[in-house]
């Protein structure tokens, strides 16, 4: 299944690169040529303002991935760093950290993103920031739990006694165990981010026209689906396939027993 996911991703990336190489301007409007059918000039036709759908979808995929990647990278870095540091430091720091993550995980992330995005109205970046601020807790929890387990192992204790610096020990022993879990969480996280951002765009938060973004494109196209159903297909398909691929990549077969996996899609 994983291979399938990777294959889908590769197809999407190929599609995006090919379309962008053609060089059609995703912003150019042709008000007299709206909802045109696919042609050699407009591979997937034009939208409600006469813009080339293929070019917009390609650019939109890039933007959606960018926002999602930014939120995942941010939360991943922050969470893992805090989680490992907390586990290493132990004691009071760790309990405070645990209480904080407990706290944050109890709060719905979408609502917080709505709140921040709705109040700051600066496009998608406030949403990304708020997603980082809620998602880091997961990574923190996970990396702390694993770090704890690894730290209890004898060779780590030995390393400490021998006086190796903690950064070296962390890098050598803890990181490898964490990487797989981080990858899983990150994939799910990207999927979740893309879906959150698009839901918020649907209700009108976080838009910066005319910058294309897959979720915004879908909600912009929805008013027209009764008579022009095709224009909603490219962004929906791209977004769904990409999220699908991410989930496939992140999925485990039941061969690996996962005590750490938090099946957290929504």
């Amino acid at each position: 299944m994983r291979a399938f996911g990777v294959a889908i991703c590769a197809c999407i990336i190929a599609f995006v690169l090919i379309i962008m190489a053609r060089g059609t301007n995703p912003y150019a409007q042709d008000l007299m040529n709206t909802f045109a059918l696919p042609s050699s000039e407009h591979l997937l036709g034009t939208d409600y303002l006469g813009r080339d759908i293929a070019a917009r979808a390609a650019r939109g995929t890039l933007n959606s991935v960018l926002y999602a990647a930014a939120s995942v990278l941010g939360s991943m870095t922050l969470g893992t760093f805090l989680g490992i540091s907390g586990a290493w430091a132990g004691g009071r720091t760790e309990s405070v950290l645990l209480a904080t993550t407990d706290f944050i995980m109890a709060f719905p992330g979408l609502l917080f993103a709505l709140f921040v995005g709705g109040l700051f109205k600066l496009g998608a970046w406030p949403i990304v920031m708020s997603l980082i601020l809620t998602a880091w807790a997961e990574y923190c929890r996970m990396s702390r739990a694993i770090a704890r387990i690894v730290m209890a192992r004898p060779y780590v204790e030995a390393g400490v006694i021998c006086g190796y610096p903690s950064s070296f020990l962390i890098r050598k022993y803890i990181f490898p165990e964490i990487v797989a879990q981080i990858a899983t969480l990150a994939s799910f996280g990207m999927a979740k981010s893309i879906l959150y951002i698009s839901s918020l765009n649907f209700v009108g938060i976080g838009l910066t026209p005319p910058v294309p973004e897959l979720g915004a494109m879908i909600s912009e196209s929805l008013p027209y689906i009764r008579r022009h159903p095709f224009i909603v297909v490219p962004p929906s398909a791209l977004m769904s396939l990409f999220v699908f691929a991410l989930i496939l990549i992140a999925s485990k077969t039941e061969k690996r027993s996962d005590k750490f996996e938090s099946e957290r899609l929504f």
Partner: peptide
């Protein structure tokens, strides 16, 4: 497994 992943990938409002 595939079906459920696919269902989840399509946004709820769609």
């Amino acid at each position: 497994a595939m079906l459920s992943s696919l269902i989840v990938s399509i946004p709820s409002f769609v």
